[in-house]
Design a binder for these strands. Structure first.
Lengths: 364, 364
DNA sequence: GCTCGATGTGCGAACGTTCTCACAATACAA
DNA sequence: TTGTATTGTGAGAACGTTCGCACATCGAGC
């Protein structure tokens, strides 16, 4: 019977009905000051009766806090980002925070636009997978303007902000080493490797060899190549540049083509390392279409663990990223910042696990 | 050199620097009234110089519009929801709207809490996959309160709100019919079938047979069972209740176990229809672990198309849902509502496609 | 008796915008 | 000249909260 056309019930009306001032009503409803039991009861009853719901815009305007976290993901459609987002959303929800989502598609222009929008919407903090580790003045400015930032998956050079990453380099090195230990000498890598300023693979290898490169702010696929190179170096195996499959784009089809190319080399590799989930998908597509047998004709390890890798033939041994945990951790760091922590920037590195599934054996 | 400690540059300061009133500055910056070229230039220059960014909270408070869409998904981590979200986000971004995301995990209590939060944050509209097609007073109330709602994937009974769905029943009927046409008579179905008030499969079948049930507001997995039953009826094939695998939970493991059960029946089915992506995954897991050959020993069609179904063995013929398009459509309907459309509730039904991949053949 | 802290309440001013007016100035037709 | 529309500008009131302050009451301690 209670007919409310528009839900424009404000605190003023509640106060009026309860016979108190708006300030008092606010104290009860907002829970931020003194109020006698008697009055508390009265105000709450009135609020209940009118169906009062606080207007978080107004509250945010005055407190300067919106209890909203802005997230800039690359592409929520991908399992990687969607799992991370899930982790973020869970932690945020538990603390009564909202999550404002945007996609950058790994384009700087779009990230810029997104950060802009989120800042204008006055989010309390920004969780970002930065798509450029150098040109990120917008993030610096936001940080300086008092908006905390937590990076994930990669880190901007010299940005004094929290970050959650994994040790790509180490996991990749260990994966390659385990292939080497199994007896493999010709191991191919299939990786995106899109952006790098001195874009040349040869010079990258040279700098890795000379130890003149800082891996922390590289993009993940480069870090994984880094580990690949290191594993070869420490085992004393010469690198064959033909075995480095630089896909150059984040696309299944491009990965498939590059994988086909690698598998058709005159001296075909006996091992294959794919540097992320999409690359693994492309590789498996190529492998099944060529009828190559795993692990008899080819041993394989992939980065990222997708559900099908465990229940389909060929099963794929994979480096498992703790995706949801990454999101949760990022959100927790963010909440601490929002709560006022001003500790120096923290960098959390989560552990990676290798899920062994029998796609690795000795070379024929 | 321009040092701004906190980015608290307000329109007042811009106005001051430009030597105009805040009202005029607002008109220029907000683009909503007269202003001479001369003054426009001056205000814009001042804004630029101070690094002015509008506070969308304040604007929202006064206009009553936040240019934000609230989304209640089941679980963004699933490919289904994340693709839909992507579609929504794309359309929203193009129109300068933000997307506030929540997960319900298909729990009514959580959906309620989510809707509450979103409304308090004053979203301009709600895009929801309602997790109960009956008890949805919170949605009714929101709608009545003036907050437009667009449902997707399923529809609340008698809720006068827009909706975007697919014709699950028809697609399922056609899929089953194609198996029947191929000669199959013992076709199993693997489906979630968790909630239904008169929870009994037998009574459901009876009501379908008697045509005394309205499919529109059923949950998708029930609609798909509906089509399964219809296909059998119209082909004159007796239903074998043992072939209806009711998983009862949305879980890979539960689906796997139920699939194992079906495949171990004394008189094993020659065809299998899995009612969504997760069910297909569970089924394929069971199939590969039992070493059943597709399509030689078992023909299979799945609902939902996931990437691995096309590039792995066994390849799975699948009903493809236009997921991204669903999200886009939902967002477009929402934007029209926000723009003021007061047409009667629209129900958009998107087309489904069957991707034939050779997992269907004649029974042995 | 007085002061003091703790508790309880209301007034009015924020917060950063947009919106409604009022009012000028200009231009053009009657 | 007058009227009327168009364009341009500013003062001040919204929007729905919270916050700072003033003030009132109460019991305890001296």
């Amino acid at each position: 019977m209670a007919e409310k056309r528009t839900d424009k019930v404000t605190i003023t009306e509640v106060a009026l009905l309860a016979g108190v001032s708006t300030a008092t009503a606010g104290r009860v409803l907002g829970g931020y000051g003194y109020a006698s039991e008697e009055i508390k009861k009265r105000v709450k009853a009135s609020a209940e009766r009118l169906g009062y719901r606080p207007n978080l815009l107004a509250r945010g305007l005055i407190t300067g806090k919106t209890r909203t976290i802005g997230v800039v993901a690359g592409d929520i459609q991908s399992p990687f980002y969607s799992s991370i987002l899930r982790g973020i959303a869970d932690v945020a929800r538990a603390e009564g925070f909202g999550v404002l989502l945007t996609n950058s598609d790994e384009l700087l222009a779009r990230e810029l636009e997104a950060v802009q929008l989120l800042l204008e919407k006055q989010v309390d903090g920004l969780i970002v997978a930065p798509c450029d580790t150098e040109r990120s003045d917008h993030l610096r400015k936001a940080l300086k303007g008092g908006c905390p930032i937590v990076q994930f998956d990669r880190m901007v050079k010299g940005l004094g902000a929290d970050a959650v990453t994994v040790d790509n380099r180490k996991a990749s090195r260990e994966a390659i080493s385990s292939l080497i230990d199994a007896g493999h000498r010709r191991i191919a890598i299939l990786a995106e490797l899109e952006r790098w300023d001195s874009g040349d693979i040869a010079s990258f290898i040279a700098r890795v060899t000379a130890r003149s490169i800082e891996p922390a702010t590289l993009f993940p696929s480069w870090q994984r190549l880094f580990g690949y190179v290191e594993a070869h170096l420490s085992a004393g195996i010469d690198l064959d540049r033909a075995l480095i499959g630089r896909v150059g784009a984040y696309s299944l089809e491009a990965a498939r083509l590059q994988a086909l190319h690698l598998l058709r080399l005159p001296d075909r590799p006996t091992g294959l390392f794919s540097a992320d989930g999409l690359m693994t998908a492309g590789a498996v597509d190529a492998i099944t279409s060529l009828g190559v047998q795993i692990p008899d004709q080819l041993s394989m390890i992939g980065f990222d663990d997708l559900d099908w890798m465990s229940f389909l033939k060929p099963q794929i041994t994979a480096v498992v990223q703790p995706v949801t945990a990454m999101g949760q951790t990022a959100a927790r760091l963010m909440l601490e910042r929002i709560a006022g922590s001003d500790s120096p920037p923290r960098h959390v590195t989560l552990e990676l696990a290798l899920a062994r599934r029998g796609s690795v054996s000795k070379p024929a």
